[in-house]
């Protein structure tokens, strides 16, 4: 197990590369999802406002 994490002495480089990639991929996916939700709510609100207003 320790061997696995040691990555033949390249642990710092291998895990940093995978860690960075994971953070970036998950980060962009979550932020896209969150923005999408927010925008859908805004569209709903605008529609409701227009219906209520006229």
């Amino acid at each position: 197990m320790a061997d696995f994490f040691d990555m033949g002495g390249y642990a710092a480089f291998v895990w940093a590369a995978y860690g960075l990639s994971a953070v970036a991929l998950v980060g962009l996916a979550l932020s896209s999802r969150k923005q999408l939700k927010k925008s859908a709510e805004d569209v709903e609100a605008a529609r409701a406002r227009r219906k209520g207003g006229s």
Partner: peptide, 16 residues
């Protein structure tokens, strides 16, 4: 996801 987001954004801009 981002396409849907952009479409919503566009809708909002038009509505505004």
């Amino acid at each position: 996801w981002r396409m849907k987001l952009e479409i919503n954004r566009r809708k909002l801009a038009v509505a505004r």
